[in-house]
């Protein structure tokens, strides 16, 4: 796999997202810019500028019409993907750690940071596509997370549940219509922050990444932990690949410790595990800082990783990737 190096950001990457068709990659970074790239050749189409703080999160709706972003400037912003025009800004009392569209794109959720005087909340807006510049100022739903703060969240299949991951290693299931608390489980080690949640293609299950050096595959219906992937480094991100039954994990020595260790010890590699057998099947090196996010093309042709080193590395899968099967999978 020969990577394409997407260099355009000047600071650490925070999130990378593919459009539903897999043709465009959106990336955001601490340099306050969102970039859009062609996934085929890594050419940059353009940028979305306006945020005045490190951008933590970005997401695009299933029709690639609207782009949502959340940042340390305490705003969620909505952009017209085609023109790059800012269409809506919601303001909050603390920074936004995660935004995500519902599977049908009709709703958008945001996770707000807990800070003095501001509770950790999950906030949901209805999105209007008829006139994209006319968005509701008021939220449709607001969930206050009063125990351990939420770090990441997303919508399950049919927008039935909202699943959130917390800084104490727990996962919570909420009713996406009413915001009612349904269930919670200690999926990861206690007090080990959950750094990422990403969905399977049909959103019936998801993968979590945690500082406890493991990633877990969890069912959205009953929060049962189905698979566990053990690594030797704190994880920042985990993704489920379509087409092939793999998962990709990314992480590395925490940024503040990196200066004292060489790249060799930092373990800045993307790790491929077999989703069902929980066995590691390969690693991809290249970043010289921790991997902050790994994203997979929904069409299953490529994956992209965003690193603390300021680069997005885009890898198109080759024949070896598709042809590899375990003996028992062949029949």
């Amino acid at each position: 796999m020969r990577p394409i190096l997407l260099s355009g950001h000047t600071r650490a990457l925070t999130q990378v997202k593919y459009s539903k068709d897999g043709d465009i990659i959106f990336s955001c970074a601490k340099d306050q810019i969102i970039s859009a790239w062609y996934s085929a050749n890594g050419e940059r189409l353009g940028t979305y500028t306006g945020h005045v703080g490190a951008i933590w999160t970005v997401d695009v709706d299933p029709t690639t019409t609207l782009l949502a972003s959340g940042a340390a400037d305490n705003t969620i912003r909505l952009w017209d993907v085609k023109t790059g025009k800012l269409v809506k800004t919601w303001e909050f009392g603390s920074s936004i750690k995660r935004v995500e569209f519902s599977p049908d794109g009709k709703q958008l959720l945001g996770v707000t940071e807990k800070r003095q005087g501001h509770l950790s909340t999950i906030i949901v807006y209805d999105i209007n596509y008829d006139d994209i510049e006319d968005q509701d100022e008021e939220h449709a739903l607001r969930i206050v997370v009063d125990e351990a703060k939420a770090t990441v969240a997303g919508f399950s299949y049919q927008s039935k549940y909202i699943i959130s991951g917390h800084d104490d290693g727990t996962i919570t299931q909420w009713d996406a219509k009413t915001g009612e608390f349904l269930d919670s489980t200690q999926a990861h080690e206690e007090d080990m922050l959950i750094s990422d949640i990403q969905w399977s293609p049909d959103r019936s299950y998801f993968i979590t990444a945690s500082k406890d050096k493991t990633a877990k595959l969890i069912s959205a219906t009953d929060l049962s932990v189905m698979k566990s992937y053990q690594t030797d480094t704190p994880l920042n991100s985990a993704a489920i690949t379509p087409v092939k039954d793999y998962v990709i994990l990314g992480g590395g020595q925490a940024a503040m410790e990196v200066t004292t260790t060489s790249a060799r010890q930092g373990k800045f590699e993307a790790r491929f595990f077999h989703k069902i057998f929980e066995e590691e099947i390969g690693r991809v090196r290249g970043h010289f800082g921790p991997l902050n996010y790994v994203a997979v093309d929904p069409m299953g042709k490529s994956y992209a990783s965003g690193g603390e080193d300021g680069y997005v590395r885009l890898h198109h899968f080759d024949a070896g990737y598709y042809n590899f099967t375990f003996e028992v999978e062949r029949d």
Binding site: Q158, P201, D202, S204, Y205, S219, T221, P242, V243, F277
Partner: peptide
């Protein structure tokens, strides 16, 4: 493990997803 996984998928598709199911295997390259 593979059998268990397939069984779980079948159950989820039937019970929860219904027509919305996006079969992983059905998504070709």
């Amino acid at each position: 493990m593979l059998d268990e996984w397939r069984a779980w998928r079948a159950r989820i598709v039937e019970d929860e997803l219904g027509d919305d199911a996006v079969e992983v295997a059905g998504l070709s390259v």
